[in-house]
């Protein structure tokens, strides 16, 4: 299988701290690849470089055969890379539907359209409603975003990622702060998505990771210490030592 995303020799330092230390990683098409690692291992820093909000010091990022290392964030999004945020990042002032509609609108040609009311564009509104139903937020579509619970916000993040119909979804801790029931819902949702697109999942919830991932990479101090199938990782000595904790 060809690599959808290829990261080679990626380095990023903040002052004296190596947040990304010579990362080499290949994510194949339609796999769900999880990245785990202790707090401060540089997981979010890695995502930020993939999405384009941080520039790596050295190294290359290749997406579908195209070098995107120096490409601005909005251009990467247009190529089909999207992310969800670890800390919920929505337009709180707008309705739930508006938030998702903006994601649909983003791939419906340019938005330098000044005349027709955006909320009257039926195909955008209907598509957005569809994504909200897919994550179970259909009944909440017209509520103001700010009125939703944390769990619902996490689901909105997924709906927006879906709405951008990206080939590569970077999910930054989608279960963060979710209760057990909500987590189960999220796992079920991700299971449904699995196989239809490439997902790079950063997650602390180990049950979720081992239930979902095709392959797992372990990041410690900005360096990938192991990559493999869930079972290989589970029994890898270095990983147990560095991260899962010796039992």
């Amino acid at each position: 299988m060809s690599a959808e995303l290829e990261i080679s020799g990626l380095n990023k330092s903040f002052g004296g701290i190596k947040a990304t230390d010579d990362i080499n990683l290949a994510v194949t098409a339609n796999e769900l690849h999880a990245i785990i690692g202790p707090n401060g291992a540089g997981k979010t820093t890695l995502i930020s470089q993939l999405i384009g909000s941080l520039r790596p010091d050295t190294g290359r990022i290749v997406f579908r055969g195209r070098d995107i290392t120096r490409m601005p964030a909005h251009a990467r999004a247009r190529l089909g890379i999207t992310r969800s945020f670890q800390i919920t990042s929505l337009v709180m002032e707008m309705s739930v539907l508006d938030n998702v509609a903006l994601a649909v609108q983003a791939r419906d040609g340019h938005s330098f359209r000044f005349l027709r009311p955006a909320r009257a564009v039926a195909h955008i509104r209907e598509a957005a409603r569809g994504y909200l139903e897919q994550v179970g937020l259909g009944p909440r579509a017209d509520a103001p975003t700010v009125a939703l619970s944390h769990g619902e916000h996490r689901l909105m993040e997924i709906a927006i990622a879906l709405a951008s119909e990206a080939g590569l979804m970077l999910l930054d801790e989608p279960m963060a702060g979710l209760g057990p029931e909500e987590s189960a819902l999220m796992v079920a949702l991700l299971k449904q998505l699995k196989g239809s697109r490439t997902i790079l999942l950063i997650e602390h919830d180990m049950d979720a990771v081992f239930a979902l991932a095709d392959r797992i990479s372990v990041l410690v101090y900005g360096h990938v210490i192991a990559t493999g199938m869930p079972d290989e990782i589970r029994f890898n000595h270095d990983v147990r030592h560095a991260y899962l904790g010796e039992e």
């Binding site: 909000s53 992310r83 983003a106 938005s111 359209r113 955006a118 951008s164």
Partner: peptide, 26 residues
């Protein structure tokens, strides 16, 4: 008219959360 248009939605979205809008490709 501009505020309610697609352009206006992007503008208001960027006011609320610029990073999100960039991530969406704007």
């Amino acid at each position: 008219t501009i505020a309610n248009s697609r352009f206006g939605m992007v503008l208001q979205g960027a006011k609320g959360n610029n990073e999100r809008m960039v991530t969406l490709g704007y």
